[in-house]
Design a protein around this nucleic acid. Sequence first.
DNA 1: AATCAAGTTTACGTTAACGTAAACATTCTT
DNA 2: AAGAATGTTTACGTTAACGTAAACTTGATT
Lengths: 139, 139
Amino acid sequence: MNTQTRYSISDLAREFDITTRSIRFYEDQGLLSPERRGQTRIYSRQDRVRLKLILRGKRLGFSLTECGELFELWDHSNSGSELQLRLMLTRITEKRQALEQQLRDIAMMQQELDGAEARCSEALNALVPTDTAAKPAQE
Amino acid sequence: MNTQTRYSISDLAREFDITTRSIRFYEDQGLLSPERRGQTRIYSRQDRVRLKLILRGKRLGFSLTECGELFELWDHSNSGSELQLRLMLTRITEKRQALEQQLRDIAMMQQELDGAEARCSEALNALVPTDTAAKPAQE
DNA sequence: AATCAAGTTTACGTTAACGTAAACATTCTT
DNA sequence: AAGAATGTTTACGTTAACGTAAACTTGATT
């Protein structure tokens, strides 16, 4: 079925369109720790989730180290001393602020793309009067 | 006043909290081309805007090459042949899709941070019954 | 038995984005 | 005039995130 429980390294590589080299590298950096059957790696559903989170982090421009920090937040968010917990809340807030900055950045970049697209379409309409240009709908 | 029109390299370095090395490197990569007074670089307001755009791109995880591609979109969005213009519209759409993917990624990561924060706060409340924990407002 | 596919370790190579240092020019200040 | 501050070019060094290749193991297949 669709709910598999164990994956080989090339299973994951295929699914996420990355190389096995990358997956082993992530393990080397401490972001994954699959079981071993003999010398062969066996990945659980949890490992798969971790990998998905890594790739999501990368799409947001996070370094592997930062991804690891997020995992720490996730993993130890229900244990540790009071001081540790308070420290984690602080870091969660920091990460959230970074994400909010990214939201602002995306909004501004979208506006710039809007502008560029408008100028592009206009230039096209000037070149090709037969309205072949890419305008959404009605005039 | 606040509306300066020329900047030295260290002006910009200070303002954006980067090194002069970085600024020269961006120029080396073709992302900036300030005037020269003798051998000294002089940056205009436009140059300053470009620099701001570079840093925004970097915060979104874009490479300098990708930033340069965005500048091309911006700069040539009102010129070029029909084919060129159509190609640019395509690439604008691609960039927009990447941004939308990032929006989705941010939303999911925010949810995970919410969860981690909730668990953290809960663990804290269990440790410190005197409600010193970080809960927003009323019980 | 031999070959083949998939996995493994080890290690050197590569690219992007700067850091760092040396050696020099220019301008301002003392 | 002699520093000191700010700028410049040139060039080698560094880190992250893999790519690539070699040499080997293991299980399945012919």
